[in-house]
Design a protein around this nucleic acid. Structure first.
Lengths: 116, 116
DNA sequence: CTCGTAGTTTGACTTCCATCGTACTACGGT
DNA sequence: ACCGTAGTACGATGGAAGTCAAACTACGAG
């Protein structure tokens, strides 16, 4: 039998367990906001290493975990890779328009700071 | 002369100094979100003590300062009281719709958790 | 089977942060 | 002038959070 203290099962909060404060906290970190923006930009899910961050691998793992545990992304194993996707549906159901406004705000701020 | 290491001048970031990450961080704390919601509820500005928080006075001061330094609220002295007001105009200009969505999300979550 | 790639885990370190208590300042009223 | 109320300042403390390095696991390819 294959009850192998399973490394492939990842704990995700249910939709009803997602909390606004946690989502805001998850989005408040520059690295994580960057990840979320990249996930939002592409339609398809991305692997962890598709997203380049100026930190080590372990730190990257940490940030992905925070995003997952706070209900912002969903992670699934695909062989050796780990696919990451935004939980748009859940977030939209719970907090309508919030994610999009954050993404727009991030875009706007980028433009603003570029012209500075 | 009256250069009294002035206690009545409060440092606020200019509109152009407000950063999304900082605003999100400021809003991510339950106490501070509570303050922001109460300020948003009433039209008029409120004093620090109008808003009851289950923490000591010093902690309250701390939270108001974080909100101010991150550009979420504006504080002005009115005699011995200190008036607090949301920087709706600035936030709306920088991050359109963001604050309102956060407030709505907070409301929605309250209702959701009440019916639980 | 062996190797490389992808990601995790653990532990350590440092900084940040929410909280408190106490002492202090500022202002208004009497 | 005095007192009370509103809020600040200053540690101190305990816990969370971001970061790294190094050792480890899991899977696919050759």
């Amino acid at each position: 039998m294959t009850t192998v203290t399973s490394p492939r099962v990842l704990a995700h909060p249910g939709r009803d367990e997602i909390r606004l404060e946690n989502v805001l906290h998850a989005l408040a970190d520059p690295m994580r906001l960057r990840v979320v923006r990249e996930l939002a930009a592409g339609e398809a899910d991305l692997t962890c290493s598709d997203i380049e961050l100026p930190v080590t691998k372990s730190t990257t793992t940490h940030h992905f975990r925070v995003l997952r545990e706070n209900g912002v992304i969903r992670q699934t194993y695909q062989g050796t890779a780990k696919m990451n996707g935004l939980r748009r549906d859940d977030l939209e159901a719970l907090f309508p328009g919030l994610l999009d406004r954050v993404l727009e705000a991030a875009e706007a701020q980028d433009r603003r700071l570029a012209h500075a």
